[in-house]
């Protein structure tokens, strides 16, 4: 790792101020960032840890029934604390990495990084969640801008994420056997006014909504509704672990299984 300063503010305001320094970078749980730093692929002047900010931690149910998750909340906390209020999201959090990673990794860190094979982007986009930062609210549909790219500005901090709770939802993850990220992960959420399907792991553009499937399932919520739908393999990731065709196929299978899990 290159040398950097470390700060651990206890308020959002202090964190924002610290991030104002040139080349300062926010540190969530560090489960992706620290390996990146070890490879010397990044050279921040300072890491501003968000783990000491109490107001950014925890899961709560809002008056309108939506669930808010603090940006510095670990996956393990979401897996346990959201189990009653939003079980599909809790289940997703419980499938990220491994237990030790889940004790450190945070939702804010994960979605700010927007790894194309990460689980949370599918859950956030599939739920139609709202990302709340120190300056504004961003709809999930506007937040994810392609592989490792988001709508966040320099120094902007995800303070929480607000999830509307669907009638039914399911995350189906097919493991990349080495990293255990998603080779393909599908998050399906059924709301009164329609179905949302978000896919991670599969596309070179990062997480995306499979709108054809959403339309078909909104019309008719059963596995067979997907029968004639095919994802175009052209934009899929093809690598050591699976061809483009295979990933396109898996999107269909995982979506079908998500429907089955919801009915």
């Amino acid at each position: 790792m290159y040398s950097f300063e470390f700060e651990k503010p206890s308020t959002i305001a202090d964190a924002v101020a610290a991030l104002g320094a040139e080349d300062a970078q926010a540190l969530g749980g560090g489960q992706t960032l620290i390996p990146t730093l070890k490879q010397r692929l990044a050279a921040p002047s300072a890491l501003i840890s968000l783990s000491g900010i109490a107001e950014m931690k925890g899961v709560c149910v809002n008056d309108d029934g939506s669930v808010s998750v603090g940006g510095a909340t670990t996956h393990a906390t979401v897996a346990s604390e959201a189990a009653g209020s939003y079980p599909a999201l809790a289940a997703l959090a419980g499938q990220i990495g491994d237990p030790a990673v889940r004790n450190r990794g945070t939702i804010g860190g994960s979605i700010a990084n927007n790894d194309p094979a990460a689980c949370y982007p599918a859950g956030v986009l599939g739920s139609g969640a709202t990302i709340i930062t120190n300056t504004r609210e961003i709809a999930a549909d506007d937040f994810f801008e392609g592989m490792f790219s988001t709508a966040l500005d320099e120094g902007e901090i995800i303070t929480s994420v607000r999830f509307p709770v669907p009638q039914a939802a399911s995350y189906q993850k097919f493991l990349q056997p080495a990293s255990r990220f998603a080779l393909v992960g599908v998050y399906l959420a059924r709301f009164a006014d329609g179905v949302r399907v978000a896919v991670t792991g599969a596309s070179e553009d990062g997480v995306f909504r499979w709108t054809e499937a959403e339309q078909a399932l909104t019309k008719e919520f059963r596995p067979d509704a997907l029968m004639d739908l095919r994802i175009n393999p052209a934009n899929m990731i093809g690598d050591l672990h699976g061809s483009k065709d295979y990933r396109a196929h898996l999107v269909g299978v995982m979506t079908k299984r998500a429907v089955q899990a919801c009915v």
Binding site: P177, A178, S179, D239, L240, H241
Partner: peptide, 15 residues
Amino acid sequence: LSASFMDYAMPRADD
């Protein structure tokens, strides 16, 4: 291509 445990799949307990 398989230059780390991120891409070189080691058998795990549940494999």
